[in-house]
Design a protein around this nucleic acid. Structure first.
Lengths: 239, 239
DNA sequence: GTTGAATGTGTAGTTATCATACAATTGCGT
DNA sequence: ACGCAATTGTATGATAACTACACATTCAAC
């Protein structure tokens, strides 16, 4: 079984089949935001069944490794980043979802600021793809991607997590473009502004945008300390 | 490995440890509603580490079995019911969550009408527990239970699934009691009524409650065909 | 300086949610 | 037969949230 575990999940070959009854993996949907588009980090699949198709980043879970830690490990190995937003979404357990054998996979999505690690992934098969332009992916990864996108869409309605996709300082226009890219809708500029200031998540940096060919907008940053009175519901678990 | 698979997950002993690196199971949080309380179906754990503690119903996933099918199988074996509402919630993958070895478990919750299968579970260790009165459970099952409860709470805000917990015909009072039991809040009777009729999910049966010591209420049933214009959001996945 | 293209602010109309009052129906005790 | 207790069924006004839309301001470029 060691052999299978040393390889990444997408490299499993048929001859490994006898080594496990059920293998377990994590797949990471790594979202980024660039040029007003929501993007996802993909890698070229080297499995012959999916020759040259793109796939999500994933790996087998090690016997002494937490699920969440496995996802953080994949992220660290592929992007060089830790301390990123990570959320478990769904576990995909169809019997024949992986051609090499039975592999159950838990999907996580993470939100990272693309600018933070641009240099790292030039040297391999990684690539940022606009989510809207993806037609097919290897395995069931397209289903996984859209399941995670739907979770992201509902999550941002109540939780201040989109800031993980932006640089520290950003304009309201950038923030609105991001919401529009994730939700796939156009919003009214003035109502968006009003709603955001009511939520009181933003701190005015008293700085202006640079190098824009029009009137520059103010720059803000997310102020986590103001999120105490947000809309987050939670039922405290009795102890 | 056959030995381990033939047993249920909660009966795994330490001597089975060498048979698997990672085992995979499903745990079902089976909700019911009775006497104005939300209840959950539990079974006595027969693992010595958790002597006589209650635990959720679960089992190992078979190598050729879908995750969801495994959950349906557990439900069928324990309650005799199929065709029940079932929803995957979360996968619990802490390394030491099971004393017998590494077991990753995916949690599902289901909603059943208690009256539909009362006779079946009198002959074994199964018991309906009020969710509010549960202090401890075996393994990490209390965390699993409350994770599923939180999902249920948010789900019923937009989706008409609570009807799975009720008999076919019910009064508005019963329906409100159910919402109050799940959400843990008191609601205003008149606003509840107004909101529900606006959603247009209910069909008036033109019948009245029987054997109530006060003015009887009308009986309704859920009309699924009216749910087309509900609030359900969904991003269609591009093909 | 005039123009283009954004930013920044305000306001009215509509819809949803919240809070409260009152009349009608049934079973029960007298 | 009658009133009482309990609960159902129906309105109405107050407040908050969301939607749609108008206008003045600021900066860069020509």
């Amino acid at each position: 079984m060691g052999t299978a575990l040393q390889r990444t999940i997408h490299q499993l070959r048929s001859e490994d089949r006898e080594f496990f009854q059920i293998a377990f993996s994590v797949d990471c949907v790594i979202f980024g935001f660039d040029k007003n588009e929501l993007k996802v980090l993909l890698i070229k699949s080297d499995l012959e069944e999916f020759n040259n198709q793109w796939s999500l980043l994933g790996d087998l879970v090690k016997p002494n490794e937490n699920l969440e830690n496995a996802s953080y490990r994949v992220l660290k190995e592929r992007t060089g980043l830790d301390d990123v937003y990570l959320e478990q979404v769904y576990t995909f357990g169809e019997v024949n979802r992986h051609p090499a054998g039975r592999v159950i996979s838990t999907a996580y999505y993470s939100l990272i600021n693309i600018k933070d690690h641009q240099p790292k992934f030039c040297d391999n098969e990684l690539h940022w793809h606009p989510v809207n332009e993806i037609s097919t992916l290897a395995f069931d990864h397209k289903t996984i991607l859209y399941t995670c996108l739907e979770r992201l869409q509902s999550k941002i309605e109540e939780h201040p997590i989109v800031f993980n996709l932006l640089p520290e300082k950003f304009s309201l226009r950038e923030l609105q473009n991001l919401y529009e890219a994730i939700l796939g809708v156009k919003m009214d500029r003035r109502n968006f502004r009003k709603k955001f200031f009511l939520m009181n998540w933003l701190e005015d940096m008293n700085e202006l945008e640079q190098d824009v060919p029009h009137r520059p907008g103010k720059l803000y940053r997310f102020n986590a300390s103001r999120f105490s009175n947000g809309k987050v519901k939670s039922t405290p678990m009795p102890v």
